[in-house]
Design a binder for these strands. Sequence first.
DNA 1: GAATGTTGGTCTCAAAAAGAGACTAGCACT
DNA 2: AGTGCTAGTCTCTTTTTGAGACCAACATTC
Lengths: 136, 136
Amino acid sequence: MALNASRKPVLDGKECDMSGWDMDNCPVRDVLDRIAGKWSTLLLEALSRQPYRFGELRRLVPDISQRMLTQTLRDLQRDGYIEREVFPTKPPSVEYRMTELGRSLFEPLSKVLRWAEANHPSVKAARVKYDESELA
Amino acid sequence: MALNASRKPVLDGKECDMSGWDMDNCPVRDVLDRIAGKWSTLLLEALSRQPYRFGELRRLVPDISQRMLTQTLRDLQRDGYIEREVFPTKPPSVEYRMTELGRSLFEPLSKVLRWAEANHPSVKAARVKYDESELA
DNA sequence: GAATGTTGGTCTCAAAAAGAGACTAGCACT
DNA sequence: AGTGCTAGTCTCTTTTTGAGACCAACATTC
């Protein structure tokens, strides 16, 4: 096949050979799949500042459903980023706080969030440009 | 209400007042919702090393469907992180490469990926602990 | 004392997103 | 003539997400 004669072969061993990754145990995927959710970073951002209660988080992030708030908090708790403490008041109140592991994750993560804030205009500009070229 | 008398008031102005965020134009959410997808970081990781063609990416990430590969690449292109170039060979070949904007995003993002690799054991341990306590 | 509000959820059903697989066209190679 | 390659699209099914009702126990209000 002469088609790709001009291109150097790919995956010659030293390159980004993801095919060697164990996909069922890939650290990046295993960890990222959880924190990549639509709500995870938002909740981590809030809890990185101070502990909050369930209802407080719901008011802080108005457009999250209770269902997804419960589920996301549980996922974050299961992975060890946040802790859940129940106070035996009436009605019982529940407080969520970030763990040390969560803080160590949030350190690099917060840099991405700041990048997002700083480069939002560039991204929006890119979208406009793309959408215009698609009209054609 | 005596219930929360022991807790200090929340949202007194200086704290994490996300309720003041414009949810329809929140930079963090707007940018993160795209790169937080299941496949985005994986493709950015690959393309951060060298340009790849459609089929190469498909082989590199074996369990992505063609449908999601197409769509994720388009999303990343629309936001300006990658470029798409069609070569008029027969059959035509398409090459994807990272842009400067993409590289500037990948710099902080790669730190999160490295955190994920380094702390995967801690996360797995947290999960085991959580699952055990849930059995009770 | 009855109605209402508060807590942190769960349950159900509808809508949206993702995955699986077939199908395309034009050409090269056998 | 048959097979394979390219980069996708189209359809169908399964999974995920969202919207909203409902819960029980107690506090406050009327």
